[in-house]
Design a protein around this nucleic acid. Sequence first.
DNA 1: TGTGAAGATGAGCAATTACTCGCATAATCG
DNA 2: CGATTATGCGAGTAATTGCTCATCTTCACA
Lengths: 199, 199
Amino acid sequence: MDTRLKPRKTPVQGRSKATCDAVLEAAARILVEEGRSALTTNRIAERAGVSVGSLYQYFPGKEAIVAELIREMRRDMVVLLRRAVDAAATQAFRPAVGTLLAATLDHHTARPELARALEREEEDLPIDMETQVLKAELRGLIAGFLRERGVADAERCAFDLVAMCHGMASAAVRAGQDDTEGLKARLERAVLGYLGRPE
Amino acid sequence: MDTRLKPRKTPVQGRSKATCDAVLEAAARILVEEGRSALTTNRIAERAGVSVGSLYQYFPGKEAIVAELIREMRRDMVVLLRRAVDAAATQAFRPAVGTLLAATLDHHTARPELARALEREEEDLPIDMETQVLKAELRGLIAGFLRERGVADAERCAFDLVAMCHGMASAAVRAGQDDTEGLKARLERAVLGYLGRPE
DNA sequence: TGTGAAGATGAGCAATTACTCGCATAATCG
DNA sequence: CGATTATGCGAGTAATTGCTCATCTTCACA
């Protein structure tokens, strides 16, 4: 376990919890509004309205802050997707795919630029085991859904589908497209087309 | 025109051209082998076997070096794709798509990690106009192909297809998959499926 | 062969960065 | 109330970075 990516101390009082949250939120805002080059510990502390000392009391470095943001994001994704898989269980294939896509898009629509920025940061971080587990869980959920529906080579399909949806959603966000419904329709078209099930 | 992204001086003698090339190649190798955090001007000069002074004689900063690498990559892509579009003109739809996909994959297979690293760097750079033109040209080539084949909403389709192929190829490279043929087959499946033309 | 231009050098400067530490303040509890 | 613990502070430090410039070497050409 790389201790440099884990929070240093867990807050016990209310105000310290607030400090932690302020730091995380400030880091997120900086990433989105000022870019990754502006993400320095001093700047984070400044925007969070706390001192660098306080920051380092709870995080061993800025990488740990980013890693924590990533963990939060992945946790949210797992929750959303797990719920969607449950809901999709009783649906026909086509609407079930729609349900899953809606869930993955929810995550993107909440804070699209943040999601994109964090995914970009993730590639530079020595990947955390917890995050790795979460990502495997995501792929597993989708693979399980596909397998139950009789799709052959479910793991590979899940891999490709996640990749293509991710690519299309990222490109749409980058291009400033905010028509979520339209994007969802295009994703459905791509997914169903790939699966050879446009019925 | 942002002068900070353009080369500073064009080499006239042979040895200075060699210096330029050494710098560019060193930067590319560092990006792939040591990661973006290791990409410092001093390190580039060191790996290129030249002094920092020489580096700054031809590039106003490290961003200009990366920008030049990106320009090279985009130029190669345009050449490859233009040739593929020409070759595809006389082919039936299905093999034509295969020709185009082979071209885009060529670019990825030559130096996959470099392509990925550069695309990542590109997002942090104030996008160069020349690069912007090149990217528009790429989309235009594909949109033109689609339009000639009677595909509706060719621009949007080109956008989506580029995005999904890019997503799948990137994910495959990141996962260490080196089965180019298999990847191409999966891309064909995705593209033809999206276009609703599995015939 | 000599002379100016082109090229190469690398020590070192200014700016920025991550991070520490001694001390002040606030909460908790006997 | 103390006393203990948790929290907050921010100037300061060591290390790193991008980049310059005075100086030396190599080349082109009359």
